[in-house]
Design a protein around this nucleic acid. Sequence first.
RNA 1: GGUACCAUAGCCAAGCGGUAAGGCAAAGGUCUGCAAAACCUUCAUUCCCCAGUUCAAAUCUGGGUGGUACCUCCA
Length: 463
Amino acid sequence: MLTLYNSLTKKEEEFHPQTDTVGFYFCGPTVYWTQHIGNMRAFFVMDSIRRVIKFNGYKINHVMNITDVGHMTSDEDEGDDKIELTAKKENKSPEEVANYYWDLCYKDIKKLNIETPEHIVKATSVIDEIIEFIKTLIKNGFAYETQKGVYYDISKFKDYGQLGGMNLNDKLAGARIAVDDFKRNPLDFTLWVKAAENHIMKWQSPWGLGYPGWHIECSAIGRKFLGNNIDIHGGGVEHKTVHHENEIAQNFGVCGTQVVKYWVHLEHLMMDGKKMSKSLKNIESVSSIIEKGYSPLSLRYLYLTAHYSKQQNFTFESLASCETALQKIWNATVENKNGKDLVDESQIKTICKNFENAVNSNLNFPLALSYVWELLKIKNKSKQIYNALLFFDNALGLDLKNAELHLSENKCLIPADITELALKRWQAKDEKNWALADKYRKEIDDKGFTILDKKSGYDILKK
RNA sequence: GGUACCAUAGCCAAGCGGUAAGGCAAAGGUCUGCAAAACCUUCAUUCCCCAGUUCAAAUCUGGGUGGUACCUCCA
């Protein structure tokens, strides 16, 4: 039985989908700059939810949006559109900016063995649906037009603030009102913005030329691809208080119900105890960790070692430890694949059961990993263990079925000068010229490689 | 200022009322020409601090201290 922590009810609940096919929506990236490893943790969590749903035998209809319009530099929907800002800065069209950064993002996602959602939808591709959604909101009395655009009237939705635990009175008391004289309530948010002359991205609408607000795209896309019943909606905590709150309000305005059943929020990845930010210059990306010599799947392993609902502290020391751990798992996978020993089937069954329970207990992957290690502690090498590992990997996503390939990739990276030195060392060793052999080994070591002697011959590994 | 989450060994991190999972690192051993790898063994009388509840607390309550995020403010 799968349980999930539901941010809306603030309880861990048993998961019961509406139908055999689970409707899953996850807030995707705003594609105006390179996604960092903190952003990537969000995609990892998205993928974990996806995998665990399938692990439990459900089918899935998974939707992720790409924000390529409407996300302003302030959550008050003021300032500039982030995409347009970059477009102007980089002297490109907004579309080029969005395509370029999404392409980068998608490549990184694939490197982390994240499965592709059934639907990846750009906000600009659903403008018609967005306009229809807003028209319905106006018709149902939840939205109104002003000189600046169309706004959602939060006074029409009693439960506004439930998800973020906001007390509206407190919030209003603290807020500096009069942001916009035409708004009925200071917390009313933008559904449609009437575009200024120099604005690049704009579409024809019943309210003139303009562009959608940021929050409306997720409701419109969710409605288009998943209908009125979204089983799980996920995203980063930063979206909880405003973005998701507004989505709930929008959905209610059209459907009159809570469209989303389970809200799942992930906490952020920290960098040496601090948040990742441009100003602190402590941002790492998938590319930058690859450049530093780590396998991207080590980063995935690192994500697995902490629970999604807690902040995780990234350090290079921990990344290195994950690299080592993953190599061991890949090694053991290959050993067991070729293993001929017999293992007590009930022992494996117990471990599998424990693994399933851990994963199903609100995605407790750190606990689940401990059962992987328990499995690998078994001395006998057996295909039974290999099969159990592959079974686990449906949830883990460490690409264990290609373990051999990943291990050999590390061997392929050895430059010619290193293989030559290794050969010389082997000859010296054959002649029992230990001093010379050690001299070569030291040279190889200094260049960042290790010699691994075997019964006959040797391997060269990157350190 | 408001709201929420968090604090467990050198690092990462589970556990959330019944007496500290797991990985990495480290130390000792087997192996080896010596190493490395592999394997075996060791590695938190204790869970940020101070009170309280309980037969029993890392886990619950209250008060501190520190970290982080969101809202507000400010740039």
